[in-house]
Design a protein around this nucleic acid. Sequence first.
DNA 1: TTATCATTTAACCTTACGTTAACAAAAATG
DNA 2: CATTTTTGTTAACGTAAGGTTAAATGATAA
Lengths: 234, 234
Amino acid sequence: MEEQNKKILLVEDDPNFGTVLRDYLMMNDYDVVHAKNGMEGFEKFKKDDYDLCILDVMMPYKDGFTLAKEIREKNTDVPIVFLTAKAMKEDVLKGYKVGADDYLNKPFDSEVLLMKIKAIIQRKATETIADSKQFEFEIGRFHLNSKLRFLRFDGGEPVKLSPKENELLRMLALHENDLMPRELALTKIWRDDNYFTSRSMDVYIAKLRKYLKPDEKVEILNIHGEGFRLVVNS
Amino acid sequence: MEEQNKKILLVEDDPNFGTVLRDYLMMNDYDVVHAKNGMEGFEKFKKDDYDLCILDVMMPYKDGFTLAKEIREKNTDVPIVFLTAKAMKEDVLKGYKVGADDYLNKPFDSEVLLMKIKAIIQRKATETIADSKQFEFEIGRFHLNSKLRFLRFDGGEPVKLSPKENELLRMLALHENDLMPRELALTKIWRDDNYFTSRSMDVYIAKLRKYLKPDEKVEILNIHGEGFRLVVNS
DNA sequence: TTATCATTTAACCTTACGTTAACAAAAATG
DNA sequence: CATTTTTGTTAACGTAAGGTTAAATGATAA
């Protein structure tokens, strides 16, 4: 079994810096796809699966944060790292909110960069162990397509789900009949764990219960203080 | 049920900086134990479980890296973050090698610090999935599922248990037919041992007896002054 | 910009939990 | 046997978590 090189999407508009960085990464056995702006970056992202995205924050047309958000909508798991010209506090905070895994200040030391990249990719690798990407579920008489974000009852008209509805239901389905801890959903989907995100989640549970009403055998039970449980009664 | 604060071990020899940082973290709902040097840090580490260690790199007697290595020998999982006076490349690299999760440059922005701490602790939280505890028990004709907190008689409808009911019954089941000392339940479940918690426990014993009534072969006996005994008569 | 949709925040209500108090019963003490 | 200590049991109370709906905010597309 040969070891597959890790694939990195690099989005950086500065041609000099971008090329140097790309070459350096390639020299270190990463497969690098280099996009020159946000649009291009998103196009390339959609076309392939990456192990890491490195996004410049300052870019014309579409800045790194906007791009990050688009990427996050498609994929909740890819590690994202931001490049900032200097450590601007607002940037850093904004980055973490969008789900950044780290950020790097330009100019940075190349060895440090490599180390960080390695650490981040490895981290994800261990997390994603049994997290087999599953996107379709049978939930009683419902069919959930988590990739296209719809839920269909029997053979009827599919209902469109919002991103949050979709991810929450998917997370419940992944733990069918078992406990899905509150904390897990909050940290994975909301990327934060506080009173308000928790209440927000409750609102979404209510929405899902409404969607699932047609099949009285399917219910979302609460385990007080712990989380929720999607059960399908036989 | 009260939310447990996350516990942080802070090892920092500079009294001013250390105190300020400690207070700031405590203001933000972390439980902080502050050690003034590496030795003390290791002692404190051995005495308790922490969610995060923040280690100053430059310390007399025992530097942060050495301490980190000792900590890693005892515990492979605690997140470790280093404090460095300035971003010295060697330090950073060395830190990552020892298994650092991140490093912070002094002086740093307090909000950024909080954000990072939050992110790191969260990361670990999701990694720690199932610690192979025993969650299921057969008690006479009952089945106890301690993870989902329910108790089922024969094949009937499961009864939901509250956290305390659940833990207490689980502890009894772990000592089936044997003495479960009062003190054990009080210290492990109530985390306190006084007149009132003791009475509270008695209330829960009464509740459990009620739940267990359907099977007359199952009973909770009292051993005066000692504790309780869950017996299953044949 | 307006219109539309997703998400968060607020409000209000219900349920769940745990503690405490009160009183009764049992066991130990001397 | 009288008295003290421990346990059994029920009910009331205060607090926290969850259910639900609606309004406010934010983001996106026309």
